[in-house]
Nucleic acid binder design. Structure first.
Length: 746
DNA sequence: GACCTGCTGCGGTCTG
């Protein structure tokens, strides 16, 4: 293969492209192709392999894929879509449509947006004369298969390329299982399976992504990883102390009407002061971690603008806000005429186009390198400008009553550990999705509907071959089908000739509009003001007439509520409390992150990016670590509890806690290990010694002690033994780690 | 269990 890294390689790649595309490139004023684009062109046009492209957000991945693909399909005559582009977000489809529109028009290749909000007329047109490129969501593919199976075959089965954007978003979670299953089903209806082109952000494990992209032949996937072009990083970690006995670190600031008595200031007030001072005048993103923190911080920032008599430029952005409000803010960011800071959850993490921002701030210590990198990718995108990151920590004030978990300052230590790993360019691999059984049930219902009935054997072969459900064997599958046919579930029934068909409940489930997605959505209140929708609140949120609420960065009073339509009519009001959205816990931490935290405790160096307070917090954490002699001790008693320091990631820690439950001990988990209540060291040691002997620990036995083992949209239809069996398989390594871990402790 | 993501087809009304 040629080496396209050289100038002549770039040139050679360019000349492989269709003349009309070369012209389009000249018209764009590009002086040359990016290296990753040249390599992709060669890979797509000079082989028949699947291709995985891993590169940062602004590297031009879309063009890298589509320039050679359009070249390849330029003279195609067959009917049906030539290219399927699958995206996790409608907004991304709209962005890509704009980027591809002009290019494909010059090639006379049609492009159609195919998602729930796309115009019906365009879809109808494409249905009549399917050709070119379809930009589609997984759920719209599902809908097509279930509602119009004949059309689905006609439109999808002759595709030559399937491009999957944001592959990293599909490596984790049930939606990834869903897409992988849809890919299998599309292949099964095709005479010649389409080549798969995966586009991904920088990911930790390319082999894992290749296995997801082509489970039948991961070795054959060509992996193209862009050379790191990370800009200079300017970074600060700032520490803040919460007042003692604070029960709500996200409470709304004492409102405008409360003037006179100075409200008790909490950490978020000081953080807002700093954000207000540093971010005004530029575009920025502030990641709050939860919708509640986002609303509370946005509220504070707006009040500061009002008090200073300057126009507000801080606005909240999260999944409960109405689409209109969110799009207005995205547009304002992209437009760049007015300085704008979005205070957001993870909504602005994926690739929706908002232009480059001056800085990124994060409230709370990060837990995942993958997501921190993705966030950081939003800044420093213009050549020569640095990435700017500020991390704001909140730690409790230490009093007489404080426990050792507070004194160890784990948030501060974790922040330092995350930054160290960021500088080492570590990214964690994706964790396995526990929703296998639930998602398989979804696909069973879908295939039966698509085919108008199918026998068990071909159904098994279609769904459970190499791919998302390969861990389900023939007997597990038979058991699952039998369970779905019981009168408690009534999803399916079997005709005398063996054909599986939908039963009463299955019929009802598939008919519903909410069937197409494999994830759930809970019922919600809709907030409206003057007929305009602001967004939604969870139905569990207690509301009453004249109640006050902070939402969408402003304060409201509830004028009226309609139980039938689940609508709250609100009006502006100076008071308000921040609604609680969901209870909190946190995303899982990787083994390596926790190991790095231990390394931070063990060393003495003080990173220069810590402010004075954060340095103090780091020193406090290290002092506590040394006082407890945690460098060579793992069991620490406190009051009537025992802390067991495991120094492993969330998965191993959770499994260890289940193993303790098996031994009759209730324990709580945290970043550094587990805490067992009401036990003495003398009682705990023999139990750990017993666990240390259990080298043949039966995973299924441990599984019996795991709470909420059935997960996913169809968890209630999952048979017990299948749930336990799959859990045991997915946690095998962590279970094997229990005995050696216990051995070190005992 | 932090956060996020998605959605048919029909029948009705309105507009040019």
């Amino acid at each position: 293969m040629s080496s396209p890294a050289s100038a002549s390689g770039l040139e050679a790649a360019y000349h492989r492209l269709h003349p009309k595309i070369r012209r389009w490139i000249r018209d764009q004023g590009w002086d040359e192709l990016r290296e990753i684009q040249a390599r992709t062109i060669v890979a797509v046009l000079e082989s028949d392999r699947d291709v995985l492209i891993a590169a940062s957000t602004a590297a031009g991945k879309t063009e890298a894929a589509f320039l050679p693909i359009l070249t390849s399909i330029a003279d195609r005559k067959a009917s049906g879509f030539a290219v399927l582009y699958i995206s996790p977000l409608k907004a991304l489809i709209n962005d890509q449509f704009r980027r591809l529109e002009e290019l494909s028009e010059s090639m006379e290749i049609p492009v159609v947006k195919w998602h729930g909000d796309a115009p019906q007329s365009e879809k109808k047109k494409a249905m009549a004369k399917p050709d070119g490129i379809a930009l589609i969501t997984p759920e719209s593919i599902e809908a097509m298969l279930v509602r119009r199976p004949a059309d689905a075959r006609r439109l999808l089965s002759s595709a030559e390329f399937i491009v999957i954007d944001e592959v990293h978003a599909f490596l984790q979670g049930p939606r990834g299982l869903h897409v992988a299953s849809l890919l299998r089903r599309i292949d099964a209806m095709s005479e010649r399976p389409a080549r798969r082109i995966g586009l991904s952000a920088t990911i930790g494990d390319l082999d894992q992504a290749a296995a997801w992209l082509r489970p039948t032949d991961p070795q054959h996937v060509e992996r193209l990883k862009a050379k790191s072009d990370a800009p200079e990083l300017r970074l600060q970690v700032r520490g803040y102390i919460e007042p003692p006995d604070l029960d709500d670190p996200d409470h709304a600031e004492g409102g405008a009407e409360g003037a006179g008595d100075m409200p008790h200031r909490i950490a978020l007030d000081y953080i807002a002061d700093h954000l207000f001072e540093k971010l005004r005048g530029e575009n920025n993103l502030v990641f709050g971690g939860s919708r509640r923190t986002v609303e509370s911080a946005a509220d504070r920032l707006r009040l500061r603008s009002e008090k200073s008599n300057v126009p507000n430029e801080f606005y909240p952005h999260h999944g409960s806000l109405s689409k209109v409000l969110r799009e207005e803010l995205e547009e304002r960011l992209k437009d760049g005429k007015l300085p704008t800071t979005a205070v957001c959850t993870s909504t602005l993490e994926l690739g929706v186009d908002i232009g480059s921002v001056k800085s990124v701030a994060q409230i709370g210590a990060p837990r995942s390198l993958a997501s921190l990198r993705q966030r950081l990718g939003r800044t420093g995108r213009r050549r020569g400008t640095p990435s700017v990151l500020r991390i704001y920590l909140r730690e409790p004030e230490i009093t007489q009553k404080s426990g050792i978990m507070d004194r160890l300052r784990p948030n501060t230590i974790r922040s330092v550990a995350v930054v160290q790993l960021l500088l080492k360019e570590f990214v964690e691999e994706a964790g396995a999705a526990p929703e296998i059984a639930s998602t398989l049930i979804h696909q069973v219902l879908s295939v039966i509907t698509e085919r108008g009935g199918i026998r068990p054997k071909p159904l098994f072969d279609l769904l459970c071959g190499p791919g998302p459900f390969s861990s389900v064997g023939p007997s597990d599958f038979a058991n699952l089908l039998r369970h779905l046919a019981t009168k408690e579930v009534r999803f399916i029934e079997q005709a005398p000739d063996g054909t599986l068909m939908l039963a009463q409940e299955g019929e009802k489930t598939v008919q519903s509009r909410s069937f197409f997605a494999v994830f759930e959505s809970s019922e919600e209140w809709r907030l409206t003001v003057g007929g305009r929708s602001l967004g939604t609140l969870p139905i569990t949120y207690p509301v009453h007439k004249d109640g006050l609420v902070v939402f969408a960065g402003q304060r409201w009073i509830i004028h009226d509520l309609d139980e039938q339509t689940k609508t709250l009519v609100v009006a502006p009001h100076p008071g308000g409390v921040v609604p609680r959205f969901e209870p909190s816990a946190g995303e899982p931490a990787h083994d390596r992150l926790i190991a790095e935290m231990r390394a931070v405790y063990l060393t003495d160096d003080i990173p220069p990016y810590l402010d004075e307070k954060a340095q103090e917090l780091l020193a406090e954490g290290r002092t506590t670590f040394r006082l407890l002699r945690l460098d060579h001790r793992s069991l620490v008693s406190e009051d009537r509890d025992m802390h067991v320091f495991l120094w492993k990631g969330s998965q191993v820690t959770a499994v260890f806690s289940a193993a303790l439950a098996m031994a009759g001990l209730a324990s709580g988990v945290h970043d550094l290990g587990v805490s067992v209540s009401k036990i003495k060291e003398l009682e705990l040691r023999p139990i750990l010694a017993t666990l240390a002997q259990m080298h043949e620990l039966d995973p299924a036995d441990v599984a019996d002690f795991v709470a909420n083992i059935k997960v996913g949209k169809f968890r209630e239809a999952v048979p017990d033994d299948l749930a336990r069996g799959l859990w045991a398989q997915q946690n095998r390594k962590a279970i094997l780690a229990v005995a050696p871990c216990a051995g070190l402790l005992a």
